[in-house]
């Protein structure tokens, strides 16, 4: 695990989708089996940067997500490593049967990358916001589900995803993400990363909420509440050992995620903790509702995903 002294730099880093675009393009040189399947959003998902360098290995299949996932399955069955990418809401929701039947069931080596996940995409509104993608991806047997928190971990996630044999869902966001992990950090699939240590509770977070958890850590410390902060870049497989240690050491676990209450990180953490080392649990998420249009900052505030919300939930959990 990373030392609890890992510096938390609040300065904004690149958006995870930007880091993905660069990492994928760079890996294209050393891994000739990588091909990209796009659904006419490459300039948003950043796979266009791969396409500019490797035009023969880039297929824009138009606005047709079902077909693009099926084509990726065929490419994988013939030995390629297809990275099939669109907005998370479109690729997971529109092409779910294809992910289930053409990819998960035959366990093909397809990398599904969903960008613009969560409500932090802002003004485009709920039709574009994947808020159920963890539940959907975790319901595909054999899928690995990765949610990097920042630029450095996205670079590492792309390398890990390509090196991993089997289907992967990688969730990425639209806005710039605060720097958390050091440049050049590695990401091991199935491993949680401890960013802070504390004895009163553990905050388990992923994606953008990891930076928010670090903010909450500092605000809680000012109140005399000491939080361990764990970043969970892989939701599946889950680092159960880290959860058991957290439960044993801190007695309380607060799970923060930019996802619906049902079927996300909170659900899988609750199942693991309940089975292995029960403790008090709290949840910060979107509940059971769609969001709306607005600035990312206004939405995160209105839908309860900022540090003060985490602090309030942590105080309540510890006081129970």
């Amino acid at each position: 695990m990373s030392a609890s002294t890992t510096p938390f730099v609040v300065s904004p880093g690149a958006a995870t989708r930007d880091a993905f675009g660069i990492a994928l393009r760079d890996l294209g040189h050393s891994e000739p089996r990588i091909v990209v399947v796009d659904g006419d959003v490459a300039n948003s998902t950043r796979t266009e940067w791969f396409g500019q360098v490797f035009p023969d290995r880039f297929f824009n299949l138009g606005i047709a997500e079902s077909n693009m996932v099926g084509v990726a399955a065929g490419l994988a069955a013939s030995g390629k490593i297809p990275v099939v990418s669109s907005f998370a809401a479109f690729i997971l929701c529109n092409a779910y049967d294809q992910l289930r039947m053409s990819v998960a069931f035959p366990h093909l080596n397809v990398k599904v990358v969903g960008t613009h996940a969560g409500i932090s995409i802002g003004e485009d509104g709920p039709s574009q916001m994947a808020i159920e993608d963890f539940a959907l991806a975790c319901s595909l047997p054999g899928f690995t589900v990765i949610v990097p928190a920042d630029e450095a971990h996205t670079h590492a996630a792309v390398r890990a995803m390509i090196a991993h044999e089997g289907p992967v869902y990688l969730r990425l966001g639209r806005p710039k993400a605060p720097r958390i992990h050091e440049a050049g950090s590695s990401l091991e699939i199935g491993k949680a990363y401890q960013l802070r240590d504390g004895s009163d509770l553990t905050i388990v977070a992923c994606g953008l909420m990891t930076a928010t958890a670090l903010e909450a850590h500092d605000a809680l410390a000012a109140k005399g509440i000491h939080a361990r902060v764990l970043d969970f870049p892989t939701i599946r497989p889950l680092d159960v050992d880290a959860l058991v240690r957290a439960s044993r050491d801190t007695g309380n676990i607060l799970v923060a995620e930019e996802h619906l209450a049902h079927g996300g990180l909170g659900s899988v953490v609750a199942m693991a903790v309940g089975s292995h080392h029960p403790c008090k649990l709290g949840y910060v998420n979107l509940g059971n509702r769609f969001a709306e249009s607005g600035t990312p900052e206004a939405l995160m505030e209105a839908y309860g995903l900022t540090a003060p919300h985490l602090v309030a939930a942590a105080v309540k959990l510890v006081a129970k």
């Binding site: 099926g70 084509v71 065929g74 490419l75 053409s102 069931f105 035959p106």
Partner: peptide, 25 residues
């Protein structure tokens, strides 16, 4: 068996993926 099928409509896309791979290689 080249593809797991049974949910209708998916085989032609998979076939197109094989066709792309064949052309690339």
């Amino acid at each position: 068996v080249e593809a797991s099928t049974g949910s209708l409509g998916q085989g032609l896309s998979i076939g197109l993926g094989h066709a792309f791979a064949g052309r690339l290689d």
